[in-house]
Each structure stands twice: as structure tokens, then as C-alpha cells.
Amino acid sequence: MNSLKTITALFKKDLLLEIRQQYSFYGVLLYVSSTIFVLYLAMGQPEDEVWNGLFWMIQLFVCVNAVAKSFLQESKGRMLYFYSIAGPRDFILSKLLFNALLMLIMSIMSLLLFLLLMGNPLRQPLQFIGLATLGGVSLSVVFTFLAAIASKAQQQAALMAILGFPIIIPQLLLLMKIATIAFSSVIQAGLGQMVLLLIALDAMVVVLSIILFPFLWKD
């Protein structure tokens, strides 16, 4: 029960920091909207496949920008302070939760902007919303762990991209493949299997980050 308390406390701290500073949320929001606006200027209203591909690419870049901050903003001194008051597992769990929430909101926001600017090719919007949230969470989980790794090295921001892009491709491929269902009224076979695989992948990343983060933490 104690660790649950710590997790909620750390989570609240991140949330409070976000609400008070309103820096990263609006920063990322501006990033999302300006990118989608540029896309709109460049492509107008693209076809289904292009729409789908662009949507997930935007998600990827948003995630890199939104999640990377979570570890980079913590200074060495503050990390030491967290070290003295909380365990590494609580710390990473609170970060995972917070980033998942952040990405959840960002996914919905960018989906709305996409629908507004790039047209609405979705035949099954509800499924796509569900998938966008699931996709946002899975991206955030992977990038949270990678941000934790990258924060220990030099040139953190560049390293995030180098580490993240190869690792995220399997997930993105799965997401894009599943997302095609939202564009047609026919239900594809083997869909449940793919969604389960995606969830299993997320679970694996979460478990790995809980196991491995204590080693990153020691400094």
C-alpha cells in the first residue's frame, strides 16, 4: 500500500507541475497543431492510406517530443531527492502512468485536428478512437523507458530518436495494420489476435521497465 501512495504522490506531482507550468502541454499542443496545419497546407485532404500513415507518423513525433521531456526535465539534484524518498519502481510507474495520460490526451487532440483539417475518411470512428488511445499509450510506454535510458547518456535528444525509431517500428506496423479496419466496413480476420499482441507487447515493455529501471537509477 505504501508504494501505491508514493506512486500517486509522484503522479500528482507531475500533474501539478504540468498544470502550474502549462509549458509542455501547450508546447506539444502547438507542435501538434502546427505540424498538422503544415500537412494540411501540403497535402490537402489525402486518401485513406496516406491519412492513416500520416496520422501514425505524427503520433510518433508527438510522442518523442512529449515523453522525452519527462526525464530530461529532472535535474540531477532532483533525481537524488526522489531517490531518497521513493523506490525506483514507484518512480518509473508514476512516470509511465503520467506519460500514458499525456499521450492519451495528445492522441485524442491530434485525432480531432486530423478530422478537422485532413477530412474524415473513417468508416468506423469509434474503433479508430479506441485504437488511437491504445496506440498513444503503447508509444508512450516504449518512449518513457527509452527516455530513461537516454537521460543517462550525452546528447539525449538525438539519442532518443536513434534508440526509439527502430524499436517502435514493430508497434507502428501493427498499429497501422489494425487501423486499416477503420477505413472499411468489412471486419478483417485475425484482428483480435493483433490487438492482443499489441497489448502483450505493451505489457512486456512495462514489466521490463519495472525490472530494469532500478539498474538505470543507481548513479
Binding site: 535510458i149 534508440l163 524499436i167 512486456m204 521490463l208 530494469l212 539498474f215 538505470l216
Partner: peptide
């Protein structure tokens, strides 16, 4: 240490 952490993660990513 960090290399080892990433190595474990990379190996796990080989499964999917």
C-alpha cells in the same frame, strides 16, 4: 550498466 539494460530490452524486442 546502461548497455546491459538496453541489451536485455533489445533481446526482448527480437521476440515480436
Amino acid at each position: 550498466r546502461i548497455g546491459a539494460v538496453y541489451n536485455v530490452f533489445a533481446c526482448a524486442m527480437l521476440f515480436p
